[in-house]
Simulated scan of single mutants.
Amino acid sequence: MQVKDKIASCKERLIAVRRELHGIPELGFREAKTSAYVADYLEREGLAVVTGVARTGVVGLLDTGRPGPTLLVRADMDALPITEETGLPFASRHPGVMHACGHDGHTAMALVTATVMNALKDRINGAIKFVFQPAEEGPGGAKPMIEAGVMDHPQVDYALGCHIWPTIPEGTIGIRAGVLMAAMFRFDITITGKGGHGAMPHLCVDALETGCQVVGALQRIVSRRMDPLSPSVITVGKFEAGTAFNVIPETAALCGTARTFDKTTWERWPEIIEMVVKGVCNSMGAGYEMSYEQGYPPTVNDPDMADRMKRIAGQVVGDERVVVPEKTLGGEDMAFFLERVPGCFFCLGAGNDAYAGIHNPRFGFNEDILLTGVETYCRAAVDLLGKPSTAAS
């Protein structure tokens, strides 16, 4: 009850923090105001704070001074290039940018977890490292933070993260052992042909037509090259070609993404896609240039940690409200932390017909769910880091 009572006493603060962050959304690696807010909050709590990690990342260390493991709690800070349409009194004050994926809630939960665990640090050994990461929505802040040494000094033993999840009911917690989210890959293709008059196609190499054939051929990779029992998807989301109705375009530009749960397939995407693009372009007499970003690997929860978190989540919401969420072909760079140490990325149920889903200009959630997230983090910290011995006390 000590944990629950302390969290309940922080409810107004938790909601206020979320709303303050919601009003100042910033895009990836531009989170200057958000980072300053986070750093100031942690410093006022008395944590050791490091700023400027991977440009705009912040790390706060709660060290008990007693030997023990280190738990990493990760929150993402960035927002999306969306114009908010919620009409909320605390809506975005930054035109064209919005917290439409719950990252303001994620950051608020981690900050208030730091407050609660700082007050209850006599109940744990070791340390908690609160990692506030930039650019989850792209191009990715987790990997550069790891490269900057965030997993060291002290060395991290466990990692936890949380995502507000509108696809499971409000009041539930979703935990899936193994693969939860897909590996992602981005490709950009420029096709070069020979432009000319629309009435004389025989004198041209039509980059637009070549591009159309590339799009079709890419779709057939999934239906004819991939194991149908292992879901994958390729989407061309951008196609630009042409300037006039009677001109055969000389260039076409395509941009898209590929997703899979299989890491081996993810690693082979560049080879597979380029082979298809090269074949189509050669058959049409066109040239091409292709670039790609490998993106994020699959998000994989350690089975033992997932089982442990299911038990902890049951203490928070009741065993009957701990659910197994469906896997999603969305990507998450929490994956990089989970590749390094045993960990769990859990889902905080937010399903409510009164709100739109993520990446929507009318996205929202019942702020009471944030208390559930904080309590889950705090109970996990007590469980994973244990209690100090009488001698240490």
Score class of each variant (00 low, 15 high):
D5P: 00
D5V: 06
D5E: 14
R13A: 12
A16V: 06
V17M: 03
R18S: 03
R19V: 04
L21G: 05
H22D: 02
G23W: 08
G28N: 08
R30E: 11
K33Q: 14
S35D: 05
A36R: 13
V38W: 10
Y41T: 11
L42F: 14
L47S: 03
T51A: 05
T56Q: 04
V58H: 05
V59T: 14
L62E: 02
T64E: 12
R66D: 06
P69Y: 00
T70E: 02
V73W: 13
R74N: 10
D76P: 07
L80A: 08
S92M: 04
G96C: 03
H103G: 08
D104H: 02
A110T: 00
V112L: 10
R123G: 09
F130T: 09
Q133D: 01
E136N: 00
P139W: 04
Q155R: 15
Q155W: 08
D157F: 03
C162R: 12
H163F: 02
I173D: 15
G174S: 15
G174K: 12
A177K: 13
V179M: 06
D188I: 02
T192E: 15
G195C: 07
G198E: 14
C204N: 13
I221Q: 04
I221P: 01
D227T: 11
P228I: 00
L229H: 12
I234N: 13
G237D: 01
T243H: 07
T243D: 11
I248D: 10
I248S: 10
I248W: 04
T251W: 05
W266T: 02
E267I: 08
E267Q: 12
R268C: 10
I272E: 10
M275L: 11
N282V: 11
G285P: 12
A286R: 12
A286K: 06
G287L: 03
G287N: 12
E289L: 15
E289D: 15
G295F: 09
T299V: 15
P303M: 09
D304R: 05
I312P: 01
A313L: 13
E320H: 09
V323R: 12
P325R: 07
L329W: 03
G331L: 15
M334I: 14
F336K: 09
F337G: 08
F337Q: 07
G343T: 11
F345S: 08
G349K: 15
G357L: 00
I358P: 04
I358V: 14
I358F: 06
N360S: 10
P361W: 02
F363I: 01
N366F: 07
V374E: 10
E375I: 06
Y377F: 14
L384F: 14
A392D: 11
